[in-house]
């Protein structure tokens, strides 16, 4: 049913994380059906689509949070369901949306949770753990906030602290579910730029993003989903067309190229005349 661009099969060979024939369901309700996706190594992939199209379900499937009904998710060549949870967590970090932490938890406390996959039952806090936490604080540029309680931070600072927890997990793969939802424009840019920085250091990143212009601006690769299927995947400039936007959101618009970044910009958006 891929009526636009299919995932190039050459991409899948070197993809650290991919899904093949993935079908996922909640009870009797099929959310994703027979879907193929591959995350290109070292790139940022944005998953876009209307509400309820299965974006978060896809992310849950890719991260081994939920079991697929059919098909498989392949992590570094192995079926992810055959791998122990801890081993997956050493390769792949997931940051869900709308996270909440107990009151009074400090930024450092939170980031330390990211070390769990690397610790045994009784193992003490190691030098490696300490170094990872310090590097995560530095990467997210929140060293000055290390001892602050999360509930005293601004939305953007708090979200950077959560991302820092995932950084401390030191995984080559990072999956983020709407990392900028409920953030104002300034804080959104703050988080997106951090994500770009991480990709620049070689992480493979996939994020669910609601805002299509941001997806085009910050992702190397866009996956457009509609009704549990992928209807387009590839570089933003190739994938994002007025027809695709019509299919996704039921709106018409004009597209322009951002002179600075070359990414598509949506103009003159209006509801489609049916």
């Amino acid at each position: 049913m891929n009526q636009f661009v299919t995932v190039p099969s050459t991409l899948r060979l070197d993809a650290p994380l991919s899904a093949c024939n993935l079908t996922m369901a909640h009870g009797h309700h099929t959310v994703l059906s027979e879907l193929d996706i591959a995350l290109p190594a070292g790139r940022v992939t944005a998953i876009v689509g209307p509400n309820g199209c299965g974006k978060s379900t896809l992310l849950n499937g890719l991260a081994r949070i939920h079991k697929p009904r059919h098909g498989s998710v392949v992590l570094n060549g192995a079926d992810i369901q055959t791998l122990p949870a801890r081993q997956v967590a050493q390769k792949l970090a997931l940051l869900p949306q709308d996270n909440s932490a107990p009151e009074g938890l400090t930024v450092t406390d939170l980031i330390r949770f990211g070390r769990h996959p690397h610790q045994g039952w009784l193992s003490q806090w190691s030098d490696d753990d300490q170094r990872a936490v310090e590097q995560a604080l530095a990467a997210a540029d929140i060293e000055a906030l290390a001892d602050r309680a999360l509930d005293t931070l601004s939305g953007g600072q708090r979200q950077r602290a959560w991302v820092a927890m995932s950084i401390a997990q030191e995984t080559p793969l990072l999956l983020l579910d709407e990392p900028t939802s409920a953030l104002d424009l300034g804080h959104q840019v703050e988080v997106f730029e951090l994500i770009r920085t991480l990709a620049g250091r070689g992480k493979t990143i996939a994020m669910v993003v609601h805002d299509l212009p941001s997806a085009c601006r910050y992702a190397d690769n866009v996956v457009a989903m509609c009704g549990g299927e992928i209807i387009g995947a590839g570089a933003p400039a190739d994938v994002i067309t007025t027809e695709l936007i019509e299919t996704l959101y039921g709106i018409t618009c004009d597209l322009m190229q951002d002179p600075a970044s070359g990414s598509p910009v949506l103009l003159n958006i209006r509801r489609m005349q049916r």
Partner: peptide
């Protein structure tokens, strides 16, 4: 002793705990 750490991470939400490799 075995559950203290994963239980602490459950306070961050079930998906976060799973993402950290806990069951």
């Amino acid at each position: 002793i075995a559950v203290a750490k994963p239980l602490a991470s459950l306070a961050l939400g079930e998906r976060v705990a799973r993402g950290l490799g806990h069951r």
